[in-house]
């Protein structure tokens, strides 16, 4: 065991340095996330704004928005302070697993070229 640790000392240093970098970025992002009562979601397709939704003004009842993606339609579920991708026929379904957002953040589907950005205000969304 001692021999193993000694032979991997520099690997360990590299591992700790990289892990700390990631943890620092993660903590920075987590502390910068907001969950205020005024969340704005902006839906982009190919970097162009398709729709902007004030999530704080949505009703408690879920509604669905169909957005044209690069390959097919993407169905987005929206309700008060909540947005997420409900249906997407991309192979990986990564965006569905990333969903939903109830705080500031971003959902991306690279396959469909769709991005949903959530911020506290309209200016936040633009700045992010």
């Amino acid at each position: 065991m001692k021999k193993f640790l000694r032979s991997h000392l520099f690997d360990g240093i590299a591992l700790i340095a990289l892990a700390l970098t990631s943890v620092a970025i993660l903590l920075g992002l987590l502390f910068s996330r907001t969950s205020s009562n005024h969340l704005i979601a902006t839906i982009y397709f190919k970097n162009e704004v398709v729709e902007t939704v004030d999530l704080s003004k949505e009703s408690e009842e879920e509604r669905h928005l169909e957005v044209k993606g690069a390959h097919s339609e993407v169905i987005i579920a929206i309700k008060r302070n909540y947005i997420g991708i409900e249906e997407n026929d991309c192979p990986s379904k990564t965006c569905i697993h990333m969903s939903p957002l109830a705080k500031s953040g971003v959902i991306v589907c690279a396959y469909q070229m769709i991005r949903i950005s959530v911020g506290e205000s309209f200016s936040d969304v633009e700045v992010l």
Binding site: A19, S22, I25, L29, N47, V106, V108, R115, S117, L128
Partner: peptide, 23 residues
């Protein structure tokens, strides 16, 4: 690559979690 393609720095939102998994 994704940030350049989507023209948004927001893609780095996923980097910490993905990079920890990659390590």
């Amino acid at each position: 690559a994704l940030s350049i393609y989507m023209a948004s720095i927001e893609m780095f939102f996923y980097f910490p979690l993905l990079s920890l998994f990659a390590l």
